[in-house]
Amino acid sequence: MSEHVHAPVETLALREQFNTAEQQKESVTFGMWIFLITEVMFFGGLFLAYTVYRSTYPVVFGVASTSLNAVIGALNTAVLLCSSFTMVLAVRSAQLGRRRALVLFLILTLLLGMAFLGVKAYEWNEKFVEHHVPGAGFHFEGAAEQGPAQLFFSLYFAMTGLHALHMVVGAGILCWLLYHAVRGRFTAEYMTPVDVAGLYWHFVDIIWIFLFPLLYLIDRHMR
């Protein structure tokens, strides 16, 4: 194995099970895609439950959905889309070997992700104030049928909660990347971690793109 002898010692080097750097890169990227497929199936279970209950209780779901703040939701969607954009720029900077730009864009992505989580926390807090949190104290004034309304909010919390959990994990990954990026461990030849972290970040973004209309927008056209 002479091909990586010239690489700096602190580079996250070729692992011993691989024969070539290319094989390693392909494997890692492919592995991330497989992982994203498992994530699709994971969220798929929730989307299935949502579909079943929304078709059973279309009216209540519509009313409950309208009680969510679509403006804040849209704002948050914009924040998340921007974070995907900065993530793309980070990956591009890594490909070009621009260390300072990479660090900058990683920080921006992290800040935008944090902003999203902050807004989300504000929204959840609103739900607590309004007694829209499922459980003993639940009360939804918009519909006489409390049960299905509670189902909507159960799904709302389950779906946005799991999404937020993925954002937190994503933020952790960004911090790890940042740590190594600052130390200059990514080069134009070796930037696979940045690449696959980008895939993950975009995936979490796409989940939100589905959640936002399904939770916030389903009944807006009436009003």
């Binding site: 209780y57 519909a143 006489a144 049928e145 049960g147 299905p148």
Partner: peptide, 8 residues
């Protein structure tokens, strides 16, 4: 259903 959940 109409007895137990009349709004359905």
């Amino acid at each position: 259903e109409s007895i137990l959940r009349p709004d359905a």
